[in-house]
Nucleic acid binder design. Structure first.
Ligand code: FES
Ligand code: FES
Lengths: 146, 146
DNA sequence: TTTCATGTAACTTCAAATATTACGAATTAG
DNA sequence: CTAATTCGTAATATTTGAAGTTACATGAAA
């Protein structure tokens, strides 16, 4: 399958929106992210449903962040996106009859569940504010080099 | 994308082979695993290249385990399969120009790398022998219930 | 009332895993 | 030697789910 890149996408969009301040249209965001406005609306719509951003129609409409950057973690975004499947590796049958397969799946599920828990925990500790600060550091470094 | 279920598959096959003792044909294994003989040959071929199983052609041919079950971990199987992609979630662009995207990707890559390390570490600690023992425990419990 | 922008359904495209078909090569039994 | 068996592998098709597109309705602002 194609990999799900929505988390990376919305983060990119959110940081651009945070830098900006005023609403950005899905067309602008799409151009910025090399994708399609409808994809942006679909994806950002999920964040709106979670109360993280707001959308407005008509002229001077667009998308804007409404949440506190310090209060939103990457885990919150992951949840807002519907908790997408984390692993590209899985069991052939989810509830097999075969005892051999049950033993195999139990062992694998265990390891994968732990790895997923760690991942989500890590995502929960990174806020948008921290990412924004990280960007500004990079930006400053970039300008001082030029 | 479809999820990669080869690790689960080969484990299932290997435990069946361990129970058996004599060679099993790819046709038998395929029937057992609800799949196609060619798929079995392709996948088991990778394990053979890693020295974990042996194949023989002609009548009385088939597949057999040649490694010590105590010496083979699930990590070894993962490696033999070519270290398939672990995550179904990824970055949109791997080496973006945009500094915003770089900051985003750096944070994500970090978290994902840690989760992957934990997963592989866990897989490295589970041997085929242990899985086989686990199966026999389940089997005994199953029989005593009947 | 015109223009801009979102909301959303329906459909197409794309990538990657898995499945299938076909046939060649090696091995064993008789 | 010959026939039957089984792997090895290339070529192709199918399947699945994400991403992209098209089309049009809805609502807001000037
Ligand atoms: S895409 Fe991030 S800078 Fe334009
Ligand atoms: S598939 Fe036949 S028992 Fe595992």
């Amino acid at each position: 399958m194609k990999r799900d890149s929505r988390l990376s996408s919305v983060l990119h969009a959110l940081l651009h929106m945070a830098e900006r301040g005023e609403p950005m249209t899905s067309e602008t965001l799409a151009a910025c992210m090399c994708t399609n406005p409808v994809v942006v609306r679909r994806t950002m719509g999920l964040l709106r449903d979670a109360g993280l951003v707001a959308s407005a129609r008509g002229p001077s409409g667009g998308w804007q962040i409404v949440a506190d950057l310090n209060a939103v973690s990457l885990r919150d975004l992951y949840d807002a996106l519907g908790e997408p499947t984390v692993f590209a590796i899985g069991n052939r049958h989810e509830a097999p009859q075969c005892l051999v397969e049950q033993a195999v799946n139990a062992a694998l599920d265990d390891a994968f569940a732990d790895a997923e828990a760690l991942l989500l925990d890590r995502l929960g500790k990174i806020t948008l504010a921290r990412l924004s600060a990280d960007f500004n550091r990079r930006h400053a470094a970039h300008r001082s080099r030029a």
